[in-house]
Amino acid sequence: MTADATTTARTAPTVGELLRHWRAERRVSQLELALRAGSSARHLSFVETGRARPGEDLLSRLAEQLDLPIRERNTLFVAAGYAPAYPQTPLDAEEMAALGETLDDLLRAHEPNPALVVDGSYDVVAANRGVRFLLGELPPALATTPLNAIRLTLHPEGLAPRIRNLPEWRAHFLHRVERHLSLGAHPRLRAIHEEVLSYPVPETEERPRTPRSRTPRPRTPHPYALPLRIEAGGRELTFLSTATTFNTPLDVTVSELAVETFLPADRETAEALREALGPAWPD
């Protein structure tokens, strides 16, 4: 065994350490988790301290009760000495062809509204014409494969200069990314997050509120959700965004896909999209 391999073996968390970590994240006691999983607090204590090895059935129940993402369930199984419980199939694999066609059809159905599919690192898997319209011409530094939605949105040469409520939207977007990071280890996502934090934030009239501020939030036409206000095609457009994921996914790759849609928040935006894109894909 090489020195690097030895270091990796020593620093990789044990199954007990992982269970303690996730219990702390979910704020659940040993007794409560043991009861939910059909075990005993004593046995769970032995597992967490390394005095007992959990069976695969118990691990599955513990992961279910802790509501672990599929990727983290695999990490738990591997730490206990078992094979991963779920496959991780590349999107370009033959068995994923039908999924790819379905996602393309879904994105087309959203037109002319912008819609895209991102993976667990916010890399763009697919996008429709509405997204291309919002992006416009990208500088070479950003037009690399894979395109990353975080970088495209917040980079000073990307969409950021055209987002009219950038401080609020940036704070919202980064908070969402940080929530994803808290769910597990995503090295690429973490690296992109750190990169984006280094971007300069342009000074605007709209500043994010601080926790201590008692100034009432300005009233907007959309008090129920934060809109994205962005300049595109020479007009200011306003969108409300949604994110959709698969129910009960059985593959790590599929579990981390999200369909992001941007719905017109007013009639002017809807009309601008129809005028710019029309009803069908170009030849």
Rank of each mutant, 00 (worst) to 15 (best):
R23H: 09
S29E: 04
V15I: 13
Q88W: 00
T238H: 03
G234V: 03
S213P: 05
I230E: 04
F262G: 00
V125A: 01
R129K: 12
H222L: 14
P187W: 07
R61D: 10
E64F: 08
V196M: 09
G16V: 00
T145A: 15
A3S: 11
T102P: 03
P264F: 04
L107Q: 03
P200C: 10
A143R: 09
V259G: 07
E194L: 15
P208L: 06
S255G: 03
A265I: 09
A149N: 11
T245I: 11
A185M: 00
E157F: 00
A34M: 02
S29P: 01
G158N: 05
F46E: 02
E256R: 12
T204A: 07
A115S: 11
A83T: 13
E95G: 06
M1D: 08
R129S: 08
Q30H: 10
A270R: 13
P69D: 09
R170D: 10
A80Q: 02
P112N: 04
D104T: 13
R235T: 13
T6C: 06
A225M: 13
L68D: 03
R188V: 14
L273V: 08
T220N: 07
E56L: 05
P156Y: 06
V118G: 03
E72K: 06
R132S: 12
E203W: 04
E48W: 02
E256K: 05
Y82Q: 10
V125W: 01
D105F: 11
P87I: 09
L59G: 06
H186A: 12
T89R: 06
R212L: 09
D283V: 13
G184F: 08
T102H: 14
R71G: 07
L135D: 01
G130I: 00
M1T: 12
E17L: 09
E17S: 13
A232G: 11
L103G: 08
V196T: 09
R235Y: 02
E271R: 15
D105K: 11
I230L: 12
T11G: 00
I163E: 03
A141D: 10
R219S: 11
A258R: 15
P54I: 01
D119T: 05
F133G: 01
L135S: 05
A37L: 02
T215V: 12
R176N: 14
A63Y: 04
R61L: 08
D105L: 15
E194G: 06
T89G: 07
R188I: 11
E56K: 11
G130P: 07
R235C: 00
E256G: 02
E231V: 14
R53V: 04
Y199F: 15
V124E: 07
V124T: 05
R36G: 00
P187F: 05
L197T: 07
L154K: 02
R217D: 13
R217N: 10
P69L: 02
T245R: 12
P161C: 07
N165M: 10
V254H: 05
L33N: 01
V131T: 13
Y82T: 09
L159F: 03
R214H: 10
H175P: 01
P114G: 13
R229C: 14
T14F: 01
V124W: 03
A185E: 14
L35K: 08
E195K: 08
L159V: 01
T244Q: 09
V259F: 04
P161V: 05
N165C: 09
E157H: 10
L263V: 15
L189Y: 11
A171D: 14
S40W: 02
G184D: 06
R207A: 12
V196K: 10
